[in-house]
Design a protein around this nucleic acid. Structure first.
Lengths: 188, 188
DNA sequence: GGTAGTAGCCTAGTATCCCTAGGCAGAAAA
DNA sequence: TTTTCTGCCTAGGGATACTAGGCTACTACC
């Protein structure tokens, strides 16, 4: 019988695209098998189980986002770098809502340690070089930045800003201004 | 046959408690029916479907959190109010991870409009009275605050802070300091 | 207090999903 | 060419969501 040429990589990519189209919660092993014209049982030669599949999508998304952010950050410093990071982050989440949702599942510690999440942390810390913050303020600032980005994008996606007419883009710009201001003038 | 006395309210409350114990993704109609010693088909007289159940839990959680925040806020102003709001918010999320997760599902616009989400927005805006911000800065600041709170809590819950030894509590305190500083000195 | 109506639960059944066991054929290795 | 093994298959078990239709205990009304 004809072989469909399924591999774990192709499955992961297809699952990620499916997630962006129909939402991560609707990405099922069965749906993925249909997409490849294959029986669902066949997929278990490539992935351990449904959870494994979701983890793979999460790792893919983390790596893609880290690449995007890295190239956005190249040659920039200070507020310029902050805005570039944030813009790349938000754009990725907008373009790839399913992948972004996948990133939110909690990975077990060793998987997380091996993921591109580490690169994110390093890049966020790199931005702060323009702001001259010493530890532990630096860690606190990294966490605040990440919280702001993730929180904003997450609220925007679930419609948390719908009830006020003000455009989300404008609020985003001003939020980054505020973040820059507080990083420049970190309270003692 | 003995009646179990199931109502939509009791179902919602039990679902919320179940969510806090085993995680929102594991709250199923079937599990809930088992909890009441009833067949799953019977629940459909009280709830429309599984999604309806999750929405009810989300609305319950929003209302509970609004109550908590409201009483935390009573008689406070300025940074005091900011910290009280934030602390109540984070404490609720910690005590009720399942309910907090339920709050993240996106409600359709009219359901959202009728929810306690509106009260949250009003209370957040009330905090800003201590900071003398005019529109549209006020809206931007509300969104930034909410983003920071939600982002921080969300990252903390999914283990985003695990890879650095710095305690999350300390980062939280310093993040609130920073938020207070930037609200006090909002960039033009 | 009998009787009609309804509310609350039931059984039965369909469809979908996840996952395991075991078989066969085409591709790769010896 | 023969052997091995990989990639797909069928078959099947168990769980879930939900619908249709039936029986019974409570309620309300005459």
């Amino acid at each position: 019988m004809a072989r469909a040429g399924v591999t774990a990589e192709r499955l992961t990519l297809a699952a990620a695209e499916l997630a962006d189209e129909i939402g991560m919660e609707n990405v099922t092993v069965a749906a993925l098998a249909r997409h490849f014209g294959v029986k669902d049982a066949s997929l278990y030669f490539h992935i351990r189980n449904g959870h494994d599949l979701r983890v793979r999508v999460a790792l893919l998304a983390l790596a893609e986002l880290a690449d995007r952010v890295a190239s956005a950050l190249a040659g920039r410093a200070g507020k310029d770098a902050l805005v570039a990071f944030a813009t790349a982050y938000r754009a990725y989440a907008k373009e790839h809502p399913g992948r972004y949702a996948a990133m939110q599942i909690d990975l077990d510690p060793e998987t997380a340690a091996a993921s591109a999440g580490i690169r994110h942390a390093e890049m966020t810390r790199a931005i702060l070089r323009g702001y001259r913050l010493a530890e532990p303020d630096q860690t606190d600032a990294v966490r605040m930045m990440h919280s702001t980005f993730h929180g904003f994008v997450s609220l925007e996606r679930t419609g948390g800003f719908r009830h006020t007419p003000r455009s989300a883009d404008d609020s985003w710009t001003r939020t980054l201004d505020a973040l820059d201001a507080v990083l420049s003038n970190w309270p003692a």
